[in-house]
Every structure is written in C-alpha cells, then in structure tokens.
Design a protein around this nucleic acid. Structure first.
Lengths: 399, 399
DNA sequence: ATGAAAGCGCTAACAG
DNA sequence: CTGTTAGCGCTTTCAT
C-alpha cells in the first residue's frame, strides 16, 4: 500500500456480546418463552416489604424509574405538592424550598412521569401527524419543519402513515384522538372521504390541514400552497414559447393541489384561444405518470408540453419518454411540480414549480401552536415559484 | 375553447368560513387573549351540580370526550371492572355481560382514554424514533417501514429529529424516556457521544440501533447493513476496469456506515498492490461532498474513481463535477451509495450500492416487537447490492 | 408560602 | 363470573 492513506484508521471492533449476525429476519420464537418471560433484572432493594397490595406490572428498578415524586418529597422533608410547585415553576415558592427540593431531585435523579402529568393536566403536549406517505420527500420535509417547530414549544410528534388509504386516514385520526393528542396536522390522502370528515368533526381537537380543503362542517386551520400562481406562471411561459397543447398529468383529484392545478391551468388558458388544455388526473404514482404519458403520446393529438403534477408522476413520465427516446425539449417540453433532490443535475435542466415544504410544515406547526394558545382558526397561503429552464422550448412546427 | 377538454371540471369552492388567506405567517398575537382564553363551547348539561371539587381544565364536551368508563358501567348497570374486562377482551365474561356492556358503549359512543390505560398498565404502546434527519429519503423510508410494522401491532411512533446534533440525540432519548415510550428505534447522529451512550444506558427500555454500533455497555438489538459487501463489489468492479486511485468521499466518521465503508475499501485493496485508496470522511452533506471533490481534483494526484458515501454527498460531488465540466465516465468514474428517487434517469446511469431502507425499518420494528415480547437482543444484518452502470468505465491512460 | 386531600380514568388483585 | 377496592404518579384546590 502506497500513497495517501486515510487519516483515520479504525480497528474493526465486533461488539462483544453479539451473535455473529447472519441475516435472520424471522427469528424463530423461543419455545418456552412467551410474553412475561422478560429478563426482569431485579433491582437492589427488592427485599423490603411490598408497598401495597396492588402492584401492577412492576417495572424493573432502573436508574430513574421507580423514583416518584413522593420519594423526592420525603427526601426533602416537604409535601408532594411543594415538590410539584417547584418543579412546575410556580410563583409562590420560597428560595429555601426550591433549594431543598432541587437538591433532593438531584440526589435521586428524579424525572417526572409525563404520563401522570398528562392524565392529570388533561393535556399531552403531543401532536398527531397523519400523512399519506412519509417516505415522499415533500412530506418528510414538511414533517421536519413541523417537528422542529413543535419541539421548540415542547410538543412531540406522533406520526401516523395512511399509505394513501382514506380509510386509514380516518382510522389514524381516531387512534390518535384516543391517545389524546392536543392537536392534529393532517395531510390527508383523500379529502372527500365521508369517514375522514366525520372523524375530524367528532374530534374537537384543534386541527391544521396541510394543503387540503375539507367541508366547512369541521372548522380547521390550514396551510395552503398557491398552486394557481405556479401553474399560471408555467402556462404563461409555455404559451409564450408557442405551445398550443398543454397537458397536466395530475395526481389524485381528491386533494386540493390537484384541483387547484387543474383549475389554474384551465383558467390560464381562457385568455388564449387556440391553446388547448388537457388534464389527466389519477394518482400520485409512477404508474399513473407512465400510463398517462403513454396514452397521450399514442393519442391522435399528443401534447407539445407536459406538466408533471408531482415527483412520483415525474418518474413515470420520464420513464415513458426515455423508453420512446423522446428528447426534451426538442420533441416535448416538460415542467414538473415539487422539487426532488437530484433534479438540478438533469440535462436538460427541469423547469419546476417549487414551494418550500419545510416552511409549510413549520407554518402548520405555528398555526397549531397559535390555536392551542387560544387563537382562532386561520388559513395561511404560501407562495409557489416557477423557474423556467431548458426543458421548455418552442414546440416543433406542426407536422 | 376547442378540442379535448378535461373530463372533470370543478367549481372553485372557496370554503365559506375562511378568511381570504393572504399569506400571513406571523400572525400578531391577540392582545387580550393569552392561554386559557379558549373558546370553551359549553356542553349541554352544564347546569347540573359539579361532579367534584377538583375539576382541572375541563375539556369541552365533545361527542366522545367526557364519557368515561363509569358512565358506561352505570348505563349498563354493572361494575366498572366488568366494563374494563369486556373491553380488554378478558376471558371470564358472560355473553350477557358482554352484550350489555357493548350496547352501552355503543349508545354512549364511548372511547377509552388511552392515557389512563397507559398510566395504569405501565405501558404506552409507543415507540420513540430518534433520527438525525427525517427529511433524508433513506431515513424517511426506514420510518415508513418501521411505522407500518409497528402499527400492525398497535404501537404508535413518536418521532424526534436530532438535526444531526449529538446533543439532541441524547436529549431526545431522555425526553422520549420521560414520555415513557416502551422502546426505542435509534438512528443516531453520532454513536461516539458520551452523553448519548449514557442516555441509552440510563434507560432500561428496549432499544434497537439502526445501522449503528454502541459501546456494549448498553445492550441493544440492531439492524445493520452489510456495507462491506457493497463496497467490496464496487471496488472489485473498479479495479477490474483498471482503476488505480479510488477515493471514498464519506460522511461522518462517527457512524457505522462510514466506518464500515472505509474499512471495506482498505481491505478490498489489500490484495491489489498498486491500487491506492483515498478516504475523505467528513459529514453527510452536500457541502462536504463538494469541498472534498474540489480538493481531490485540485490535488497532485486526483482519483480516477470516486465513491460518494451518501445521497447528499453525491449532490455535492455532482455539483463540483458539473462546475468543472468533468465528464462521467470519460474523465472520472462514479459510484454512489444509497439510491435516490431520480437517479435512474441519470445519463450516464449511476453505479449504485443499494439497500432496502423500508425493510431496514420493518426489521428494526420486528426486532423491537420481539424484545418487547420477551425475546433477547439480537442483531440482524441486511444485504447490500452493487449495480454496475455506465458511470464506471476504464480510466483514461495516465497522463 | 406550605400541606392535606381529592381525584384524572382506568386496571387488577382479591373476595365473593 | 362479577363487584369492591386500592392505587398508577401527578396537580390543584382549599385551608391554613
């Protein structure tokens, strides 16, 4: 071995206690060891008399577990209520008291049991996030924005995927409601679902819709994207280039973005007689993108420009175009909605209608925080930007 | 308007009760309305005598809220414990009892308060997922796999981002512990952090590491990827093509994937004297990818092949290559780790070391479920695949 | 400023 | 099989 070497070399330390690890996923169940067989590492002072008759599911005595507020009180020689007051920063507490209590807390390594607090206070400081598909970069960035903002206010995020199934939307709402979340962030799979609307209505929990509309029956806040503006700019650009047949391959017609985009496309073309809009709603999937593209290109009058209504759809569109060796923008112009990580390195560069998903999530969280703080429901609309790029060019002269 | 029209036309229904929505994010705080000002929609039977002296934060009387188990018991004319037994599917319950109770439940639309159950049972059916960056597609797919699997067993996922800050790792673990999660799924930002190790050790909660190692002190299960195999295949391929200077631009050296990849690269080249390995660990960021690439290309002996150790790093590498108009694979061969959505449309196609992140998440969840069911800790290693592609070619002859 | 007591809504002994 | 009872661990009146 010659030449430069890594600055950092590291011995391969196989963690001692582990089995060699040979990719076994479905571990055979231990014959004799059903639930309840748990390792039960007996704590130190297991000898003394049981504290009471009732002793449910004793949790193994770990560092902090089992140390309750009453122990702190005893240690500090004060009443539990005083400990509680100190810990929750109540005003009327003497310095002496505060010091005594904090000392005891320190010594015992006491950590409050939030479960008990939640039950008692009637608030969980938890927000339920129902989302069609967290693995979609758009949604995961929204999640990041939301989580970051919520955490700054000491809220935690309970995540529930619906895998784009409206029934799971409703079920998740119900489930999270039973877990007593203080609020909801909803990126629903289908805003027309009766069950979902009911689930939302049944809950009187503050709810923020993320780029969705819902029958007014259930009052909510919402963070919306201004899809109209984006589509309008894109269409203006395409029309300016001379396109006369523009197709939007859109996602599910049961969510706001799709409806807005379709409306915007049609509206934008109202002033341009001679320019034809086509719309292919369907699903936010690669399959739909591909099928729609195939269909269009096989049709009597294929479009000269396609707008892909989402990142998965884009994949399908590109796949079909690649299969047919259709060149962009020579044979067809292409615009896409919502950025994807590597899009910037495409050749040709992809014209894109962008928005800021992190900011959407953060805004949704702020709206919810406001609602939880007593404010009224509110709708925020965030902008959308169209960046032209070389994937759009004048159409080829009519055949 | 002529020609084809969309099959679906839709009136633009502006939801009635909403303000026109003019993008205002930082809503001014209402002067007089602090917390506690909440709308307090008084329920129907607000006239009767208060049920008790203590009445904390009375939740507004919604459909299901306020309906407690005792009411069901009363309605059914049985004891609360019987209701409980019926609802938790206890064996020794007569059909008559079951029917009476279920009827009452139905009529009242009763939904159990999981908070109370959690406190009483000492289990929350909640899993804490600590992750460096949920917006990374790799991690969000892992999250999806985990959530889907956990949900099938009635566990919910509490998500905590650490934005790649080791201190937040530890803090999040502590926070989730206070929320009494039953288990942890950890995709730590830095496995060498003392604080994190302590936090994990302090918790006696079952913990699954996701592609991380941790000092044995804290016993855990783990799901690992076989990075060695992937790198080994990739290097074999490159060496086979005649490359003699291969650089791995890696992410943080404080996580397992980076260490494994570095080790594997060096090991793979042990048998190939004359082939030089370079390693540039740093961070999983575009910035590092770009800086490292710049550095390498400006160096005395630039590599003939680069392995990008992550999707963000890849973006940086590509950016720098594009800026210098370096052609792949003519001037340089490129391999990347971990797939990204649009990579398949790259020209040339990117050679990639792949794994199945959804399956990683699902496996992690299964391991945790097993642990929660009383099984011992276990390590699962999932495979990795190298697909060659046209981004790799023989190097240009030495200058 | 501090303490005593009364639960939040539920479960699980225990005793019929 | 069903009812009684004693809490889970904490917060919050209410009364000093």
């Amino acid at each position: 071995m010659d030449g430069l070497q890594p600055r950092r070399h590291r011995r391969r330390v196989r963690p001692a206690a582990r089995r060699p690890a040979g990719r076994r996923r479905h571990r055979p169940r231990h014959p004799g060891g059903g639930p309840g067989m748990s390792t039960e590492s007996s704590g130190q002072r297991n000898t003394a008399a049981p504290r009471s008759r009732t002793r449910p599911a004793r949790k193994s005595a770990a560092a902090s577990a089992g140390t309750g507020m009453s122990q702190v009180a005893e240690r500090a020689g004060v009443a539990m209520s005083s400990v509680s007051r100190v810990l929750s920063g109540h005003a009327d507490v003497s310095e002496a008291m505060r010091a005594r209590v904090m000392a005891a807390v320190e010594e015992l390594g006491y950590q409050p049991n939030m479960l008990a607090q939640m039950l008692r206070r009637g608030a969980t400081r938890t927000v339920g996030f129902v989302v069609g598909d967290i693995s979609n970069p758009l949604l995961s960035q929204i999640a990041l924005g939301a989580e970051t903002t919520l955490r700054a206010s000491d809220y935690a995020l309970l995540l529930a995927n619906s895998v784009n199934d409206p029934r799971l939307d409703a079920e998740n709402i119900q489930l999270l409601h039973q877990r007593r979340v203080d609020g909801f962030l909803l990126s629903l799979s289908d805003e027309t679902s009766e069950q979902t609307a009911e689930a939302v209505a049944r809950t009187d929990t503050p709810t923020i819709l993320i780029d969705r509309d819902l029958p007014t029956r259930a009052p909510t806040s919402a963070v919306l994207s201004d899809h109209r503006a984006g589509i309008t700019r894109a269409v203006e650009h395409l029309v300016g280039l001379g396109h006369e047949r523009i197709t939007l391959i859109a996602g599910s017609p049961h969510v706001r973005p799709t409806r807005e985009r379709i409306d915007a496309l049609e509206e934008a073309l109202e002033d341009s007689p001679g320019v034809v809009a086509q719309v292919r709603p369907g699903a936010f999937t690669e399959a739909h993108g591909r099928a729609a593209t195939r269909d269009l290109l096989d049709g009597r009058r294929p479009p000269t420009a396609i707008i892909a209504g989402g990142n998965q759809i884009l994949v399908g569109v590109l796949a079909e175009l690649a299969a047919r060796e259709i060149r962009i923008p020579h044979d067809l112009s292409l615009v896409t909605c919502d950025d994807v990580p590597l899009a910037q390195f495409f050749t040709p560069a992809l014209a894109t209608i962008r928005r800021d998903p992190y900011e959407m999530g953060a805004t949704a969280a702020r709206l919810l925080l406001a609602r939880l703080g007593g404010a009224a429901d509110e709708v925020a609309t965030l902008p959308t930007q169209f960046s032209a790029a070389s994937s759009c060019a004048p159409p080829r002269p009519r055949q």
